[in-house]
């Protein structure tokens, strides 16, 4: 019984936290950041993220997408660059994403698209998608 109560309290806490984060994420004017450096958007996002890293685009061996990961049960922000001045999208040698598309380089590129995903069934899927820059 004690464990159930603790678990319930934990889930409630997680959900409330996620809700607050979701509200913060939804209130950002992402259109403003289109065609501006990804770094400027990263600074505007809630800073409570677990990690920021790069991934491939929609094709496994071409990059990159910047992921802002707020942790399990919480929304996740995907930022796609529209320029490739500081990195090379193709990854023919199948290097790990952090090597193929270093975050420090990719975040200097300009924002093309922003997508927020939430896994809650009650949320739209995706939660928000702002597209696109030049």
């Amino acid at each position: 019984m004690k464990y159930i109560l603790l678990l319930s309290a934990f889930i409630f806490y997680q959900k409330t936290n996620a809700q607050t984060l979701k509200d913060s994420l939804m209130n950002i004017n992402y259109h403003y950041y289109l065609n501006k450096p990804i770094d400027s958007l990263l600074q505007a996002l809630p800073q409570s993220y677990d990690s920021i890293y790069t991934r491939a685009g929609s094709s496994a061996f071409v990059g990159a997408t910047v992921v802002v990961d707020y942790g399990t049960m919480k929304p996740m922000v995907y930022i796609t660059p529209g320029t490739k001045n500081y990195f090379t999208p193709a990854n023919p040698s199948h290097q790990p994403p952090s090597i193929a598309w270093p975050i420090n380089l990719v975040k200097q590129e300009q924002t093309w698209q922003v997508t927020i995903y939430s896994l809650f069934f009650s949320d739209p899927w995706p939660l928000k998608q702002v597209c696109c820059g030049n």
């Binding site: 685009g57 929609s58 071409v62 990159a64 997408t65 660059p81 490739k84 698209q113 997508t115 998608q129």
Partner: peptide, 9 residues
């Protein structure tokens, strides 16, 4: 059209 390695929504 999207980008290299990325489609539009």
């Amino acid at each position: 059209p999207g980008k290299e390695g990325k489609t539009r929504p």
